[in-house]
């Protein structure tokens, strides 16, 4: 598209030029990003680079179709999300059929849904949600500082993140990013990132093992599972249902019951206080730390 003719400062013309329905890039780049958020990989895998510097789309026709749909629906993000979520592709299982693994090892044809780790914000929200702490209220700002004051002197801002509101409402201090989110690949807030990393590193495990957030959540879960029944099996079932959304397998149930017995014995042997409520908190923590809790199939 030729650049527009300038009348005023040029900002209006620039905006119109960028969002012109026949602009070849804007809607394609946008729907591709949304696809990346939903599926874990863009139709153009290099979300931040289209064209000669980037990779080619795996499904050019699909990209075009989505882009046109997007523009024709009045640039409705909601509609675009709905389109993707209701698609058969989105609803595929992540287990690969034998021949699919052979013929499409990298799953470029989307014959299965890629296993995905929850993003940083979703990990935090999920921990707060299953432990009954998440504050799901809408809107508002948690930024306690006035304009400009948050630019300087952010040394003690970590404590500002200590609240149960959803992650999307947490303030972002560029110089003191919330350490829990930062551990799980929350991108640098000053860098545009269309394609978040998904790293697996030891500091993440430290956070899961030792952070206040996880310990508080596991204590809440233990209290929750403690009172209605004193039958261990019922407690395991309730915990599994609550945290993983399914009943435990027999082998899992047995592993937990074994743990309850041996840890009580070990604790006694080492002269520790084998508090049973703490043991259930430990089981809850194991579930919060489990791969199944973090990875979506």
């Amino acid at each position: 598209m030729p650049p527009p003719e300038l009348l005023g400062s040029g900002r209006l013309e620039l905006a119109r030029w960028i969002t012109h329905p026949s602009h070849p890039l804007t809607p394609r780049v946008f729907v591709n990003r949304l696809w990346r958020w939903r599926f874990g990989r863009g139709i153009v895998p290099t979300t931040d680079n289209f064209g000669r510097l980037g990779e080619r789309p795996t499904h050019p026709e699909l990209l075009d179709w989505l882009a046109v749909e997007f523009v024709e629906s009045g640039w409705s993000m909601k509609r675009l999300h709905r389109l993707m979520l209701l698609s058969a592709t989105y609803q595929m299982s992540s287990t690969a059929a034998a021949d699919a693994a052979q013929r499409d090892p990298q799953n470029e044809l989307w014959s299965r849904f890629p296993r995905r780790r929850l993003e940083a914000e979703a990990i935090r929200d999920a921990i707060l949600a299953v432990s009954g702490q998440l504050d799901t209220r809408f809107g508002g700002s948690l930024m306690p500082l006035k304009d400009r004051t948050y630019v300087t002197g952010t040394a003690s801002k970590q404590q500002q993140y200590d609240n149960p509101r959803r992650s999307v409402y947490q303030p972002i201090y560029r110089s003191a990013v919330y350490d829990f989110l930062a551990a799980f690949d929350f991108p640098d807030p000053a860098t545009p990132t269309g394609d978040r990393q998904e790293s697996v590193i030891a500091p993440q495990s430290l956070v899961m093992m030792n952070s206040e957030l996880v310990h508080q959540a596991s204590a809440k879960l233990a209290e929750w599972v403690w009172s209605p029944s004193d039958d261990p099996q019922t407690r395991v079932e309730r915990l599994w249902q609550r945290v993983l959304g399914r009943p435990p397998h027999q082998a899992e149930l047995e592993a937990v019951l074994r743990y309850m017995t041996t840890s009580a014995a070990d604790a006694a042997g080492q002269g520790e206080d084998g508090n049973e409520l703490e043991q259930w908190a430990a089981v809850a923590r194991v579930l919060l730390c489990s791969n199944e809790f973090l990875y979506i199939d």
Partner: peptide
């Protein structure tokens, strides 16, 4: 950050074994 265990090491070890 988060390097200090909130449990005794044997306790944490048992928990990690279950995990």
């Amino acid at each position: 950050g988060s390097i200090q265990p909130r449990l005794s090491l044997p306790q944490q070890r048992r928990e990690l074994d279950l995990l």
